[in-house]
């Protein structure tokens, strides 16, 4: 208890020492109390990626993605009660029945979007804002929509406080996407649903990619990657984030 209170105090101190304006927030954290934990988390993600290389089709993720994972202060996005787990490779509750995904899954989803530095990306389901923060380091514009007003408000405040200026957040219905800023190079739909809203597919650029995590809360079972080709034809791809093949031997 005492150690935790000490932690909180250090964090509080760090918060107040963040320069208010033009310095990107992440630089302020370069030497923060969590730097080691974050570096360890990145190494763990790299290990998981190597272990699942066959299933996700690559032995390592885009170095830019890994750099973003190593910079964004995840502990800012988890509730106080979960701080001790902030950099553990596991999902965490953030209240309102929502979770912040396992770092490995966030890295994988971000990589699947193949983010380019001028891209516009739409996220449905802001949650704590962590995914949006990771994306903001990689792409030009991030647009994020959250259905639960309380979460939307706290995420908006948090993203502003930490200086993620290329993220636009709003509260509301994600079904129709964000018409004014469409089309998008990438879309992340973190809301669980048995269907993919047709307007989102329409707002995906030809050549764009959409990623949908599927499963129950705390357990991402598969990632569905939706790709739209230059001609507008849509395919989906089910990716298992775990090294598990059902066939012991290939059937003839």
């Amino acid at each position: 208890m005492r150690a935790r209170a000490g932690f909180l105090w250090v964090i509080g101190l760090l918060l107040f020492s963040v320069p208010a304006s033009d310095v990107c927030a992440d630089d302020a954290y370069a030497g923060d109390a969590y730097a080691d934990a974050r570096a360890a988390m990145v190494r763990e993600i790299e290990g998981d990626v190597r272990a699942t290389a066959r299933w996700i089709g690559k032995g390592e993720l885009d170095p830019r993605v890994m750099e973003a994972m190593g910079t964004v202060p995840r502990h800012e996005f988890v509730p106080e009660s979960e701080l001790r787990w902030a950099y553990a490779n596991r999902p965490l509750p953030i209240g309102y029945g929502q979770t912040i995904s396992q770092p490995y899954i966030v890295a994988l989803m971000t990589d699947l979007l193949s983010p380019g530095s001028d891209d516009a990306v739409l996220e449905i389901g802001t949650g704590s804002g962590y995914q949006a923060a990771v994306l903001s380091r990689l792409v030009g514009e991030v647009y994020t929509i959250e259905i639960i007003p309380e979460l939307a408000a706290s995420a908006r405040k948090r993203l502003a406080r930490l200086g993620y200026q290329n993220v636009a957040a709003r509260t509301g219905d994600g079904y129709y996407g964000w018409e004014e800023h469409a089309p998008f190079d990438g879309i992340v739909v973190t809301a669980a649903a048995g269907q993919i809203p047709p307007p989102l597919i329409e707002q995906l650029k030809p050549g764009g990619r959409m990623v949908i995590p599927v499963g129950s809360p705390f357990l991402t079972q598969e990632l569905v990657l939706v790709e739209k080709d230059a001609a507008g034809a849509v395919t989906t791809r089910a990716l298992l984030p775990v090294a598990f093949v059902p066939f012991t031997r290939a059937p003839e």
């Binding site: 763990e44 998981d48 272990a51 699942t52 490779n89 596991r90 396992q102 490995y104 899954i105 499963g215 129950s216 357990l219 991402t220 079972q221 298992l240 984030p241 775990v242 090294a243 598990f244």
Partner: peptide, 9 residues
């Protein structure tokens, strides 16, 4: 494989 996504299965 629990930490590597195995729990979900």
């Amino acid at each position: 494989l629990r930490a590597k996504g195995g729990l979900a299965l």
